[in-house]
Amino acid sequence: MTAVPEEPAWRQRAVERSTRAAKLRAEQRVQRFLDSAQELIAEKGTTDFTVQEVVDRSKQSLRSFYQHFDGKHELLLALFEDALSTSAAEIREAASGMSDPLESLRLAVDMLYRQSHPSPGVQRPLFSDFALQLLVKHPAQVATAHIPLLTLFTELIEQAAEAGAIPAGRPRRQASLVMQTIMFAAQAHGVPADSHSHPVTAEEIWQFCLGGISGVPATAGRSAAG
């Protein structure tokens, strides 16, 4: 059997260099589309813009847009995923400077609550009109986008449990419930439950979540009662 000659090292280097350059150009094009879409959201206060507007603002072609995105929904998913990833990184950095695991968790709850308020003027909206639309139409992709935050909250709950600050439980499940509570409450911020109440505060969200994490599970309570 004739041996296949090994590809020369110079050829491998040339191909790798060419591939890196093409990848960098593609990343730059994608970022220009994302930046343009984010600018339009900030200006309009909504996601009611067209793909053509994004293309025109980015000074790129429609063909280039569809080489990188299937459509507007995928562009919005990319923005949403990027916002959640950035949020997780910011919260992780802030929480890492605290020595008390429970205070780290409290800080994380407060930061996510404040970051999740719908605000058209904010450059990284986490929970706005398009987030709700994506949740309904693309739940699997939205769930994937939340993984960095879910991982972070799971770790913080585990650390608090290991320190004895809260009972050991199902940290990932608890993290999911805490995040859903925070983000839904943030979406309803400014809308009181009734005409005699005030908008929910970050402190109330923290106390509610802490009570849920620290409370005795319902199954345990029924078992003891029996």
Rank of each mutant, 00 (worst) to 15 (best):
L76Q: 06
A89H: 07
R92D: 05
G97P: 00
L77C: 05
K72P: 03
E90M: 12
E90S: 12
L76T: 10
E90D: 14
S85R: 13
A88H: 00
L79E: 04
H68F: 08
L75V: 14
T86R: 10
T86F: 09
K72A: 08
E74T: 11
E81A: 13
F80K: 03
S96Q: 07
M98V: 13
Q67Y: 02
A78K: 06
E74C: 06
A89K: 10
L79Y: 04
G71A: 12
E93T: 11
D70S: 07
E90G: 00
H73E: 15
E81K: 14
D82P: 00
M98P: 00
Q67C: 05
F80E: 09
E93Q: 15
A88S: 15
H68Y: 14
L79S: 04
A78D: 11
H73W: 14
G71Y: 10
L79G: 01
A78W: 02
A78L: 13
M98K: 15
E81P: 01
I91D: 10
H73A: 03
S85C: 03
D70L: 07
L79C: 05
S85Q: 09
S85K: 04
L75E: 06
A95W: 11
F69Q: 00
I91P: 01
A94N: 05
A89P: 02
M98H: 14
A83H: 11
E81G: 08
K72S: 06
S96V: 04
E74P: 01
S87L: 15
T86A: 13
S99L: 09
M98Q: 10
A89C: 06
A89T: 12
Q67H: 12
L76C: 04
A94Q: 07
T86W: 05
S85E: 09
L79T: 05
I91K: 02
F80W: 10
E90I: 09
A89N: 10
A94D: 11
E93S: 14
S99A: 11
T86Y: 06
L84G: 08
I91Y: 05
S85D: 13
L77F: 09
F69K: 02
D70N: 08
L84N: 14
A83W: 02
F80I: 07
Q67P: 02
D82C: 03
A95R: 08
D70Y: 03
L75T: 01
F69M: 14
S87T: 15
H73R: 11
A88I: 01
D82R: 15
L75F: 13
H73C: 00
S96W: 03
A95V: 09
K72V: 04
A88R: 01
S87F: 15
D82S: 15
T86K: 08
T86C: 08
E90Q: 15
S96N: 08
D82A: 12
S96I: 05
S87W: 13
E81Y: 05
A78P: 01
F80P: 00
L76D: 02
Q67W: 07
S85A: 09
A88Q: 15
L79D: 07
S96F: 04
L79N: 05
S87I: 09
G97F: 02
L76I: 07
A94E: 06
A94V: 09
E90L: 13
A89W: 12
A89V: 10
A78H: 13
E74I: 12
T86E: 12
A83N: 10
L77W: 09
T86I: 08
H68Q: 12
D70V: 03
S99D: 14
F69W: 15
A94Y: 07
